[in-house]
Design a protein around this nucleic acid. Structure first.
Lengths: 268, 268
DNA sequence: TGTACATCAGTGAACGCGCGTTCACTGATGTAC
DNA sequence: TGTACATCAGTGAACGCGCGTTCACTGATGTAC
């Protein structure tokens, strides 16, 4: 028998949500550092001390907003990915990338809260880690799928190595490279960037958690594409593209395509 | 005759600098939103109202910090670039990228001030624009130089165009492509990402201001490399690489090399 | 179904704090003759 | 070189404001018998 939720519990959940919603609105006005429990209480039509029935402190309210933010952008990216044909890997990447950007443009202050400068004096608790990785997990799975299907462009012949410091890396635990699926048009080679040996542990861990079966250079290519994507979104949102890029949507799509190339995910 | 600086003027300049230095320290503790004139005054051993002799308001102090920040990272990148052989374009890119990262790691709060979330309620005045572009100018010149020297890898044959929405762009005002300088080893082709027509105005403007003589696709490749670079620095600084990348320096160098490929700047 | 008790939400006052900015002032430094 | 005056830096008090958090309380809702 499922435990009946009493009316009191239902009201409690609703008011908790309402407080978080109002707090989110306040983020827009004053940023995370300016978020004030008293101001939220005023907007709720409550006395300030009543908020403490729902959130034991200001930091707990912040944590809730951060967790919600990661979950919301994660859900948006998941939905965009799910709406694509499973084997359209470049399409999935572009759809996920666009979903992230659109979410960010619609909620710039929430985006700033999770991907902008850390809130001074605030230490994120461990419960934010799971939601935080939700978006990255979608992209990781996509790369894994593409790799397993042999849909990644083959690595290019290594460029001449003129730098004596950085020798050929040892890539011990890399899975076999499968040939591109027959019947597809010939793909351009993905650029070869040898991965230094000191990174192979990280690559192995990422294979274990988020990108199973993906070779080192693609793991880091994906990482760079991921960071690059959010770099572009942040530049757009935080004003670095003022007087630089006018048609931001067109540029974003173009850049997303270019970044896809870093992991051998090219063309439509 | 140069106007003699009176002792008073010299002291004034020094105290102004001292206030800014202390304010910078305070950024670390409370972020931009928490920067307080009263606290700075306390640390200066002054009464709070005395600060107003030097900065007419809190926002003016913030503006000074932002301008100084842009100038400092710009100078660091300029110096790194200047220390390279003029025709070592990949080396100049890597040196500039590393300088930006090292500056950011040494002054994370100043970095957050200029490349992180905008300060709520603060409107940057026009005088910050010049310093803000200093870093980008260095990278722009580097790409321009490489292009003029014919040191960029040739564009790859365009991949099959399956997407009917995004036709072949018209690239009206592109300069001629020069062949790669003879005598160099064959370079891998740079990936072809056709630039949509709506972006050609932006490309032309950027050619006029910061990347003269550079074809559209390289202009946007450079833009993406630039945004990607700061995306990686921000991810590292703002905690997104926790439990993801361990050897951050090695990864950064690797990623910088991969991003360089976006503008056809490959290999040593 | 009715009653006694426990739980919980919300109140209002208070504590102790910090903030940006203004203003009339004192005394030191610089300038013009 | 000396004097009168103007400029400037720094003081201290004040204005009016907002903040997070605690605490004893009232009254409503839920639970156990």
């Amino acid at each position: 028998m499922p435990p009946r939720r009493t009316a009191r519990e239902r009201v409690r959940a609703e008011i908790t949500r309402e407080i978080a919603d109002i707090a989110r609105d306040h983020l827009a006005a004053g940023g995370a550092a300016g978020l004030s429990l008293r101001a939220v209480a005023r907007d709720m039509g409550m006395v300030s001390s009543a908020i403490y029935r729902y959130f034991p402190s200001r930091d707990d309210l912040l944590t809730a907003l951060i967790t919600d933010g990661y979950n919301a952008i994660g859900a948006a990216v998941e939905a965009a990915d799910a709406a694509c044909r499973r084997d359209d890997y470049p399409g999935r990447w572009l759809a996920g990338a666009r979903a992230a950007r659109e979410w960010a443009l619609a909620r710039p202050h929430e985006y700033a809260l999770i991907y902008g400068s850390p809130v001074p004096g605030y230490q994120a608790p461990a419960d934010t880690i799971g939601p935080a990785s939700r978006t990255a997990v979608v992209f990781g799975r996509l790369v894994s799928d593409a790799c397993a299907a042999g849909a990644l462009s083959p690595p290019q012949a290594a460029p001449p190595q003129g730098d004596p410091i950085q020798g050929d890396p040892i890539q011990g635990d890399q899975p076999d490279r499968r040939p591109a699926r027959p019947g597809r048009p010939a793909r351009p080679a993905r650029p070869a960037h040898p991965v230094p040996a000191t990174l192979s542990e990280d690559a192995a861990r990422l294979r274990g958690t988020v990108m199973p079966g993906v070779p080192d250079d693609v793991v880091f290519g994906a990482l760079t594409a991921w960071a690059g994507l959010f770099g572009i979104i942040s530049f757009e949102l935080f004003g670095q593209f003022t007087n630089v890029v006018t048609d931001r949507g067109a540029y974003f799509d173009h850049a997303a395509g270019a970044l896809a190339g870093l992991m051998g995910l090219a063309g439509p």
